[in-house]
């Protein structure tokens, strides 16, 4: 499959994520949008990794390890995202307990 389709898909996912973050006020949905963006990036990484591997094999590299680092990064990102979600959700829960809302527009008190 040509790499172009992956790129388009990834851009679409990423844009949906951005729009989600920008337009929604519900913290949980914003979180989901962020996840969407992260996964768009992950998709990109995996696609490029595979592309490089194929190219290397065609060029005669039999080890098949070319482009592996891209996939490694995906794992990192997934781990970090998981950690982030756990912390973030914990914060949202605390917030809900305190102000009975998960609307981010109430969350502008940090500036004081």
């Amino acid at each position: 499959m040509p790499i172009f389709s992956y790129i388009v898909l990834s851009i679409a996912l990423f844009s949906i994520g951005i729009v989600g973050v920008l337009t929604r006020r519900n913290a949980i949905i914003i979180f989901m949008s962020i996840e969407l963006m992260l996964n768009a990036v992950n998709l990109m990484l995996v696609a490029f990794s595979k592309m490089h591997q194929n190219a290397a094999i065609l060029a005669g590299d039999v080890s098949g390890t070319a482009g592996m680092d891209g996939q490694l990064f995906v794992f990192f990102i997934m781990v970090v995202a998981a950690a982030e979600v756990s912390v973030g959700l914990a914060i949202i829960v605390m917030m809900y307990r305190n102000i009975h809302s998960v609307d981010v527009n109430f969350l502008n008190r940090l500036k004081h």
């Binding site: 973050v21 006020r25 969350l107 500036k111």
Partner: peptide, 14 residues
Amino acid sequence: LQSGQVGSYVLLMV
């Protein structure tokens, strides 16, 4: 600019 509105920060960033 430092309004505290997370949305506006993100918008600026984008």
